[in-house]
Nucleic acid binder design. Structure first.
Lengths: 259, 259
DNA sequence: ACATACTTATAACAATTACTAACATTTTAT
DNA sequence: ATAAAATGTTAGTAATTGTTATAAGTATGT
């Protein structure tokens, strides 16, 4: 780690770091390239003029970050630990080399965070949020379903999304749900997501529904099917014995996380 | 875990924590980043002003809105005035009620900025950058092509994108180009984009190529067709008379912006 | 309810760290 | 070998961060 980097091989390297989503810090770069901090300052100023970066105090950030804004009203108070625990259980089913569908929703988003460092996976998702989390994971190929972008919503739905799903068969689909009736009926708040969820199950060898216990016994607007059609429900320990008994009649397996 | 990180690094880290649903506590953050609590207070106040969080006594919670970023390296800086002028010319062809395809590229991205306040348009695009610009435009329905997300690249390509294009017919396609040969041949740096560009022309009644003059006479890797297939080339006044004459033989119309 | 103790937030100034500019030195190219 | 470009050094300036003191918010006990 000693030879001084000739010329502006550094720039190439720096731009590479940017593509990986890294933040640039002056003194780290100076050490990395074995040059003085002054040189890094000059490099960064040039890169700024070329429009690659924006300078910040102490370093630099990518010039143009495109970002999507979503409304996540629910996220705040609710059940984050439970969702994480559910995602952990779901993770146990994932093997390297598999192809997955990851549905929209905050619980499946937690699973996306856990999959980040996995090797050799293909993930198909209608969720821009999931795609954003996985975009820099070198071991994961992310396929975004197409479709209409709705303001404040992170997911792509509609005919396009359904058509694209028809192009693939995957090993496992991980779905969310906004409500599960005690008869095992699966609900979404949004009808369009319900349709996409139905289609997902048809394109996967196995389907797991990830749903925290607060939504069990809650019905919602759009029914997309029944727990009878899936391999397992994964939920948290907040599920009551009565709910468990009731759902067990319909669902072949119910996995309850520790938390 | 000792080194102090500058603000931008802390900010990124804090936002990451937010996305994972952690609630922020001032003294924990101070320890985590090895800075004083005063600094964390200042950070959180800044983040509040930027709309990322809401402050609570002793810490902070996520705001309702959450942002997800896609990074891509682009130098919007180079030739930006020319690109803006080209986009202005392209804009003249757009009428309310139309359906458009907007290709990937920095010039078409400029056009997206101009379309933002248009009424009653449908825009189909393979570009996450274009989609992010248009996401909050109430008068525009944005359809994102599906496909594989490549690291550091803002566009969706591949079989999926092409299949989705087959689902639509539009009024106008606005394309970019990475190079145009003096024989009118259209080039892309990326083969996958070349294929998508070919398909776009088939699905549009009219096609316009938006390309700043610096790329005229430059050939690149992947040919996607010829100016003979399009309705017009829109470029800037940097085009030389020789280039103009040469391309005029092939292209039915060449529109030159003032700048 | 009120007052008390306790924690957290802000303000002002001091200390630290990062940035810029000018000049010296090294490296690269002709 | 010389000019040109790039890098390093130093000192001075600007921005951020830390410290202390004071204010404001929360929680408790009577």
């Amino acid at each position: 780690m000693a030879a001084k980097a000739p010329f502006e091989q550094r720039k190439k390297h720096i731009i590479e770091l940017l593509k990986q989503g890294k933040l640039l810090v002056v003194n780290e770069l100076a050490k990395k390239f074995n040059v003085s901090e002054m040189t890094i300052h000059r490099d960064l100023n040039k890169l700024q003029q070329q429009g690659h970066i924006e300078r910040t105090y102490g370093g630099a950030v990518p010039a143009e970050r495109m970002e999507f804004e979503f409304d996540f009203a629910s996220r705040r108070a609710s059940n984050q630990k439970a969702k994480k625990a559910i995602a952990q259980e779901a993770l146990k089913f994932v093997q390297p080399g598999q192809r997955l569908i990851l549905d929209t929703g905050t619980t499946t988003l937690e699973l996306a965070y856990l999959l980040k460092d996995f090797e050799n996976l293909t993930v198909i998702t209608p969720s821009l949020a999931v795609a954003s989390v996985l975009q820099f994971s070198s071991g994961i190929q992310t396929v975004l379903l197409g479709g209409i972008i709705r303001k404040g919503s992170p997911d792509l739905t509609g005919v396009v999304a359904e058509k694209v799903l028809d192009m693939f068969m995957v090993d496992i689909a991980f779905q969310g749900a906004d409500g599960i009736g005690l008869n095992g009926e699966l609900f979404n708040t949004d009808m369009r997501i319900a349709k996409v969820d139905q289609k997902m199950r048809k394109r996967a060898n196995q389907t797991y529904v990830l749903c925290d216990s607060s939504k069990i016994g809650k019905i919602d607007f759009a029914s997309n099917g029944s727990l009878a059609e899936v391999n397992a429900l994964i939920t948290d320990s907040g599920i009551t014995p009565e709910q468990f008994q009731s759902l067990k009649k319909i669902c072949s397996e119910i996995i309850v996380s520790k938390i």
